[in-house]
Design a protein around this nucleic acid. Structure first.
Lengths: 215, 215, 215, 215
DNA sequence: GATGAATGAGTATTCATTCAT
DNA sequence: AATGAATGAATACTCATTCAT
């Protein structure tokens, strides 16, 4: 099992296509470039040539793969989401307690945000722009929340609003503290549990316990 | 006392300058126009001519007042913030209970969001772009939060992270339910109180009570 | 007789109209402003508002007096030429030797260039743009040159080319040494006499003599 | 040896790049175009689209090669200077008499001015705008002047002022008589020699001799 | 497939000029 | 006469997109 800690490749897509044909390698170069450039300049401000220059290909090459910026953003965002979800799922495979699952997932996302800030920058800013992404995230989170309800831990209506509230708390943490200190992680996890209906003291205790078990 | 409910002018700035000279009237036309256009197309996508056309002036006129989009956004955002804070302050003048203050303020912002969706759209999307705005909001909110701590209601560290978490919950409500149903208002207020450290049941009761007192 | 040395007013036109009506005073303010601005930014680069701002009047006021930049330049250039010619003529009234007249005139123009650099800047750069100016200068210079021929000093064809050559030498001095050192003055006078056909040694002697008599 | 008389190509740059790649051919088209347009409208008055239209390319193409007008002017001016100097140097290779060198160079520049008026227009008007150019010209002229001093012909201080005086006389000739009659050439050469300290009669004789040897 | 030169629509910005006050 | 806000034509410049090589 690939663990999160070992994974700090800065080229998500290249890594996956080293073996495949030239076409796939060029596509990956574009995708990885897009992550970097979107992260540093923002989606609106990046020009096609920013991506191609960073990828070391001619500007015309872009159009052999994508129609426009939006299209490559979709690929980038989905690719990032899949990778991050994969990492978390790997680790949570055997965890059945919903509280632990929520805290672990939150902490792990923040962990990725610390190690690969570009990924999370792009991913979070993509959510409002890439419709498909939103539904993916919702479907994923809802499972754990539902589980928490059934286990009697959470007291809240599980719906789109809730999921978005949790995402918003996550984004807030990342935007405010790019280094993602332990403190920020703890407070974000606690905020999640409070929101889900745990009394404050209990939320604190559970977060303490779950985080200490993570490393 | 001017109440929020009676106020639904759609021209925040024009209204204030009907009596003053031509220069101020044109400036207000541009400001009101900017609100509309920023709200409908977003800041990045609006062109200067969108603003001037909507205001019914020539494109060159814009530059008699502002150097660029960013500069008019600053004026717009600060103007909106001042107006909204004024409305809420009017109503909260005599309220000393921090919980009631927080719930009322939250509900009132959502009320404005329902009646003047453009205002809140622009205001919220301005926060990351207009540095001055962030500090204004923080200063304002911190007072009530501090009061809640002293009254023994809240159990949380009052800092920049907290303020941003609350703003993020507010934004989430508005983005997800532009109509701002009573349900959305209630859940957002509850989320705020939960985040601030009230046990879920108590939070629900307090929100119920405070909102029913509002009309 | 007004002497050159006493004259260092920086407002050629204002000075002449202090007594006349408001209209003339505004016009003079525009003219003096135009000199300053043309001198510092050049004719092409100056905008109407540069002139009006410098004059302390509203931009629209300009059009009460002039149709465009070219028109005010004409007035400015002619006014400057008249003033400079007047000063030199005052001094040369009793001088009958053509060599002394040429050397004195040259030295005096350079003297003005030193004391009122803006005047000469504008005047010289106006020559190619203000047709009337060229013919004025030619008519003026030709007299002394003709006199020198008759006195047997000069050996050269007196025509447009010669006059322009002399002007070009004058401009060169001013452009290269804005401070107009004594050395620059001497060399320019000598260049003039050499061009007019005096043998080098004689030219040097005459310049020496004429300049020493000037102050 | 390529003679001046045979050379009347009107496309200085195109001619040099017919064989190279497309990029260089387009660049040359822009350069040649710039010469024509600068010559006919003057630097200030030419718009980028004047250059691109004349070159038969789209306006955007300009910016693939140059950032602005000034940048292409630099290239144009240096290119012209190099070409003209090359032509004169070719011819003067074996001439050791400084007087003959000066007269020949002067006459040849005027010859170019007659055959390629645009070149000289642009070149002369570039001198004040392109700093590099001035120093190039100075370095070039100074050699011959120094030689004349050593040969005992010239009596003058060789410095920046002198070089600029000679350039000014050259410009005057071109501006006043675009056709560059023999008369204009003769008088300009004589003016140069007089300025350099030859007695008038001797100057006339030397010019007569040198010019008659030229064709 | 990759290249990169060429394109030209889109937009910002300036500034001379007008004209109601 | 003076004002100065409004105008809009003129122009620079960017950049997504095309396409011949």
């Amino acid at each position: 099992m690939r663990t999160i800690l070992s994974a700090t490749s800065h080229s998500l897509f290249q890594e996956q296509t080293l073996d495949r044909g030239k076409r796939e390698r060029t596509r990956s170069a574009l995708l990885d470039s897009a992550i970097s450039v979107f992260a540093s300049k923002g989606f609106e401000a990046t020009r096609i040539t920013d991506i191609t220059e960073h990828a070391g290909v001619a500007n015309g090459t872009f159009y052999n793969y994508y129609r426009d910026k939006q299209e490559i953003l979709n690929d980038v965002a989905i690719g990032l989401a899949v990778e991050i979800v994969r990492r978390i799922n790997d680790e949570l495979a055997d965890t059945i307690n919903a509280i632990v699952r929520v805290v672990t997932a939150t902490a792990r996302v923040l962990e990725v945000a610390r190690q690969e800030p570009e990924w999370i920058d792009v991913l979070l800013s993509s959510i409002p722009i890439v419709p498909e992404l939103q539904s993916q995230v919702v479907r994923y989170l809802r499972q754990d929340l539902q589980m928490g309800l059934e286990q009697g831990y959470f007291h809240i209506e599980v719906d789109l609003l809730l999921v978005n509230q949790m995402l918003a708390l996550l984004s807030t943490a990342i935007l405010l503290d790019r280094k993602i200190s332990k403190e920020t992680t703890r407070r974000t996890c606690e905020a999640h549990l409070r929101l889900l209906g745990l009394p404050p003291v209990r939320a604190a205790r559970q977060v303490e316990k779950a985080l200490s078990g993570l490393q």
